[in-house]
């Protein structure tokens, strides 16, 4: 464990908590893409199957359970409890166009052709594009509530911090995982436009408005 990965995991945890608080407190999931939340649930499910047969540390196990529970809990809140507030007309990104390529690529480019390894690789590829429906929704509505932009900032920061973790591990532990690194860079790049708007607008108290 290193400081970059710890901060990354905490940023990820904070993002998930911010989202649950936003939906629970405002009793609304307006501005949130249910499609992205479905993709995150698929990512965590396919990545954390090793919970069954591999114990790494209490921290690792607890965080995996929290991420799984929070992602399914968010889907429950969005598609059941607060279904009336779900923006079905704007949340129209075709996620099959993200899932299929990730699955095909995982079958072609992986470290080992074994079920758990393919699923892990699939989850890495899918996670790198899982935020697209959410960014698409924000661009369609043209704006986002400030708490939603804080959620996105934390979520985007988590994988950006992981990049520093990979740099650290390359020099300190002399090991690297190209699949995770390339996907992590793609994932972080997708947030760049949002990061720019967040830092230049939201941090100055303005609302996050995307140029229409």
């Amino acid at each position: 464990m290193n400081i970059f990965r710890l901060l990354g995991d905490l940023s990820h945890l904070l993002a998930i908590i911010i989202l649950l608080v936003k939906i629970w407190k405002t009793r609304s999931c307006a501005g949130i893409s249910g499609k992205s939340q479905i993709l995150f649930a698929v990512v965590y499910t396919s990545r954390y199957l090793d919970l069954i047969n591999a114990f790494i540390s209490p921290y690792n196990t607890i965080m995996k359970i929290v991420f799984l529970a929070a992602s399914y809990g968010t889907i429950y809140l969005m598609y059941m409890k607060f279904k009336a507030t779900y923006d079905v007309n704007h949340d129209t990104f075709r996620i099959e166009f993200l899932i299929a390529p990730a699955a095909v690529l995982a079958l072609i480019v992986n470290h080992a052709f074994e079920p758990l390894e393919i699923l892990w690789t699939f989850s890495i590829y899918l996670e790198s594009v899982a935020i697209l429906p959410q960014l698409f929704l924000v661009s369609k509505t043209g704006e986002a509530e400030s708490i939603t932009s804080h959620y996105l900032f934390m979520l985007g920061s988590y994988r950006a911090l992981y990049i520093f973790n990979w740099i650290y591990r390359y020099y300190a532990e002399n090991h690297y995982d190209l699949i995770a690194i390339v996907a992590g860079i793609v994932q972080t790049v997708l947030y760049c436009d949002f990061f720019y708007l967040y830092i230049t607008k939201v941090l100055k108290g303005k609302k996050l408005q995307l140029p229409a």
Partner: peptide, 10 residues
């Protein structure tokens, strides 16, 4: 391989 080590990442 490299994969073993990054298994401890979330």
């Amino acid at each position: 391989g490299t994969r073993e080590k990054s298994k401890d990442e979330l």
